[in-house]
């Protein structure tokens, strides 16, 4: 103990609406604290991990995340990611990471053509990431998705590469942990709910773990291990470097 709290930065775009939830989620961890990073700024304020929150950045006009990626703060986030900094994109944040080229693939319209807000079961496919290290492989997390464009797609070659390199982090499954008809809420290719980049420091997921950190609420607490993983990773890294 005695660690300084892990410093999270939560980016605020105009139209972000899960920024406060991400901030709140981080604050439920005694070993962590969050601060907001304004889209017009370029200063990452020395944070140790960046969260791109859910919402409708810049109204999601044009294409989800397509305008956000050009904001001043994103240029700093891209640099931070290239230097190995931990970046987690949730929902609209995932879309922005894809638009920014920090993650492969694209997120297109749900096959149901409607916004879908629903509990899904997520299987942790790999714990070999800074975002899932506190989970167990095969563990099933029950978390809410809420989006219109969460249908992950990518060309076959890249998909094969993602599979081979263990970059598919979360998949939609049924409660028993099996891939099944009806378990995938948006038609995502290969049931992909979350992916990381090759260097494993950038991670995007469509479901909202920040709404699942308190057992007394409808969202439950299954999102906690993801935040815990980030905290553990930052602390481990700090120990190694100090």
């Amino acid at each position: 103990m005695g660690h300084a709290p892990v410093r999270f930065g939560v980016v605020v775009f105009p139209g972000s609406n899960c920024d406060a939830d991400a901030y709140h989620a981080v604050s439920t961890f005694p070993g962590a604290g969050a601060q907001y990073l304004w889209h017009k700024d370029t200063d990452l304020k020395d944070v140790q991990a960046v969260i791109l929150p859910g919402g409708f950045s810049y109204g999601d006009y044009l294409r989800c995340g397509a305008i956000a990626r050009f904001s001043p703060i994103m240029q700093s986030v891209i640099d931070f990611a290239h230097e190995g900094g931990l970046v987690m994109g949730i929902c609209n944040g995932f879309q922005t990471l894809v638009e920014a080229g920090l993650l492969p693939g694209a997120l297109i319209r749900n096959t149901g053509l409607k916004f879908v807000c629903r509990y899904v079961n997520l299987r942790v496919e790999t714990t070999r990431t800074p975002f899932t290290s506190a989970c167990e492989t095969g563990e099933v997390l029950r978390i809410v998705v809420k989006h219109n464009e969460g249908n992950y797609t990518v060309d076959p070659e890249t998909l094969a590469r993602l599979q081979a390199a263990d970059q598919i982090v979360l998949r939609y499954v049924d409660a028993a942990g099996e891939r099944a008809e009806g378990a995938n809420p948006n038609g995502a290719l290969d049931d992909v709910a979350g992916v990381c980049n090759e260097t494993r420091n950038v991670f995007g997921m469509m479901p909202h773990p920040e709404n699942s950190v308190e057992a007394g609420l409808a969202g439950g607490a299954d999102g906690r291990p993801l935040f815990q993983s980030i905290i553990d990773t930052v602390l481990r890294t700090a120990e190694v470097t100090s």
Partner: peptide
């Protein structure tokens, strides 16, 4: 209908 609404944002929802 309800599944088209975000009923959980703001992290206060106890009963959906």
């Amino acid at each position: 209908a309800f599944e088209q609404y975000d009923y959980i944002v703001q992290a206060n929802t106890v009963q959906i």
